[in-house]
Design a protein around this nucleic acid. Structure first.
Lengths: 198, 198
DNA sequence: GTCTATAAGGGGATAGAC
DNA sequence: GTCTATCCCCTTATAGAC
């Protein structure tokens, strides 16, 4: 009697967990709450995710896929010019940051929340996913900067990367009061444009 | 009031707690561990700090005083020129970020770790201290930018603030591997100099 | 009186069992 | 789904040492 395992269950659990982890932080959300809000049984959850860290890793992996897809679309729309692509990447971060309810970068937030997690367990651990995503994004920037043919590409990569980190960190704390992020987002795009000379 | 016994006890407890909170995160450090490493009794700690949140607030308050003192020295050494003062402020952050073991800004780390804490309890709550410190630092930058007489001072403030946040966030996650922060620190100072036109 | 050491209360965590 | 086991959290209370 192989009863069909209710398609979409894993996705539903992961969706609920992702929202909770992102909004309240990973440590602040217990498995109990995830089970309650997902309306599933405890057995089913632990069947799909044997431990909480597996669920966290899946949450980050899911965010990574979405970000990769988003970056792919942005780059495609920006054409072939590396300068335009770089500005488009920063502008996409700036647009994301503006969204109400945006609470910062999921990967950076996780790493900040778990300073001890050194990701020694490999790529399946949450910190491994986060590190991989950050390295990948940085490499994408470095590749475009390399094609730009500027005098000091490494320095430009650092500066653009500082802009990205600055936007994400401000999103993580500035919106808690009525502090709008729009000026910061505008300023970041403006600065990025100047830096790449576009 | 019990007459102040054993001078320095409060400072010793606070010193141990500060180091642990900063290195491992506030949530990850329990009162038990603080007591153990401070070599004090549990009763004594709760006599000085009735609740953990009081200890956390004192930790942030202590960090705030040190940062204020540091900023005062830096500004004094930079002379009266607002541009030089701004570069000196960024350079001081850059120098701090380089220090091995530096794990980011205590205030931003706290706010990132407790996204729920809205500091409704006023200035004695941890989030209140953090918010006050960040507002104060930002105001110090805005004041110098105002004296600079540039075309769009608000935008420049945002851009410098993005640099500061970028440096602090990178310090919070990049040093976990062998990723040196020196290039980012150099790039930030370089960019700050260009932005203020010095 | 001052401090340490230890136990215990009340809650919530992950995880497993039925 | 509920129920349990085990553990750690913050906090308080009690008992003992100098």
């Amino acid at each position: 009697m192989a009863r069909t395992p209710a398609p979409g269950t894993r996705e539903r659990i992961l969706g609920v967990a992702s929202r909770l982890f992102y909004d309240h932080g990973v440590r602040a959300v217990g498995m109990n709450r995830i089970i309650t809000e997902a309306g599933t049984g405890k057995n089913l959850l632990y069947q799909h995710f044997p431990a909480k860290s597996d669920l966290v890793a899946a949450y980050l992996e899911r965010a990574r896929e979405r970000r990769a897809e988003s970056a792919r679309r942005v780059l495609e729309a920006a054409g072939d010019d590396p300068g335009e692509q770089l500005v488009a990447l920063i502008a996409e971060v700036a647009a994301t940051v503006r969204r109400p309810g945006f609470r910062g970068c999921a990967f950076r937030n996780y790493l900040a929340e778990f300073p001890e997690d050194d990701a020694l367990d490999g790529d399946e651990a949450p910190a491994g996913v986060a590190h991989a995503q950050l390295a990948e994004t940085r490499a994408a920037i470095a590749e475009r900067v390399g094609r730009l043919g500027v005098e000091d590409p490494d320095r430009l990569v650092e500066q653009l990367w500082l802009l990205v980190d600055g936007l994400y960190l401000q999103a993580a704390y500035r919106d808690r009061l009525d502090d709008r992020l729009d000026p910061a987002a505008d300023a970041a795009v403006d600065l990025a444009r100047r830096l790449v000379g576009a």
